[in-house]
Amino acid sequence: MGDLGRQVGEGRMSEITYLEGIRQALFDEMERDPSVFCIGEDIGAFGGAFKVTEGLAAKFGDERVIDSPISEIGIVGAAAGAAHMGMRPVVEMQFIDFIANAYDILTNYVATARYRAFLPCPMVVRGPSGGYVRGGPFHSQNPEAGFIHTPGLKVVYPSTVADAYGLMKSAIRDEDCVLFFEHKYLYRRIKGELPAGDGAVPIGKARVAREGKDLSIITYAATVWKALEAAEQLEREDGLSVEVLDLRSLAPLDDEAIQATVRKTNRVLVVHEDTRTGGIAGEITARISESSFAWLDAPIMRVTAHDIPLPYAPQLEDFVLPQTSDVVRAARWVAAY
C-alpha cells in the first residue's frame, strides 16, 4: 500500500517530518479503506492550518476531505453518527484547544456509546497540540488529562515520525474513538524514516526511547526530546545512565512497560508539558506506588508545567513550561536521594 502517492514525494526510505508522517498515514488509510474520510475546518483545498491534510482533497475529492463550518460540536457529533453507520471519520480540530467545545459530545455521547447503547464509534479526533511555540493561552494547550479521565476514549500522543505514522494507522483501524494529539512543536522539527511494511504501531504500548540503569524518566510528546537531551547531559556531566520511556499511548497506559523500567532503575521522574494538578503524572505515580513500591529507592518526582494558563510572551511561556534544565535538576535530585 505504502508507496502509492506518497505525499512527501520521495521514496519510502527517505526522511520525512513528523507532520508528513501523519499525512502519509491518512493518505495510506484513505487509499486502503474507502470508508475513511476527513472532516474539519479549512482542511480541503487549503490543506489545514498546518497543512497536515495538504494534497488529500486533490487526491480523494471534496466528499472525502470535507471543509466544515466552524462547528466543533457538529463535526464530532457527525463523525459519531457516520461511525455508527460504518464510516471511519477522522476529525481535525484546527487547534486541539478547541476540542473543549466538543467536550460534551465526546465525553457524554461518544465515550459512552458502546457501553450504553452497543453502538460502535470508530473515529479519530486529531489536532495540533502543545506549547513552546508562543501561541498564547488558546493555541498551546495539552488537554489530554480530561479525556484520559473519561472511560471509553483512547488517547495517543506520539513523539516520533514512525509513531505518528503508525499510531495514526492504528487509531483509524481501532474499533473505538481515539483522540490523536499531535505536537505542533514537533511537526517540522522532528524527522525520521518510516519503517518497512505496514508500520502500524499498537495502541497501549510504550517505547523505550533510551536504555539506562540508574534512573527512569517517564514521559510523552515533546518532553520526550527534552528528556533525551537531559539524559545526554546527565551522562556527560554526572555519569548517570538514564532510561527514557516514551508512553506514546496515554489511554490505555502500558503498565507493563512502566513497571519494567521502575523495577530496573528503582528511581523515577515523570515529566510532562501539561499542567501539574490532575495531570497524568499523578496517575502514573499512583500506579507505580501501588504496583512497585518495594522497588523504589527514591520518591517519584514530577516535572510539569506550573498550574497557570499558558502565557504568550517567551519569557513567561518558558518560565511556565518544563525545560531541559528542569529535567536535569530534578533527575539529579532523584538520583542523589
Binding site: Q315, L316, V320, D326
Partner: peptide, 25 residues
C-alpha cells in the same frame, strides 16, 4: 521592557495572589 519571568506566577486567583514556583525551578 520584556516581562520578568516570575511575573507568570501572579494572578491566577484573587486568593492566593501568586503561585509558588515548582520545586525543580
Amino acid at each position: 521592557p520584556f516581562p520578568e519571568p516570575h511575573d507568570a506566577l501572579q494572578g491566577v486567583y484573587a486568593d492566593p495572589a501568586a503561585e509558588t514556583p515548582l520545586w525543580f525551578r
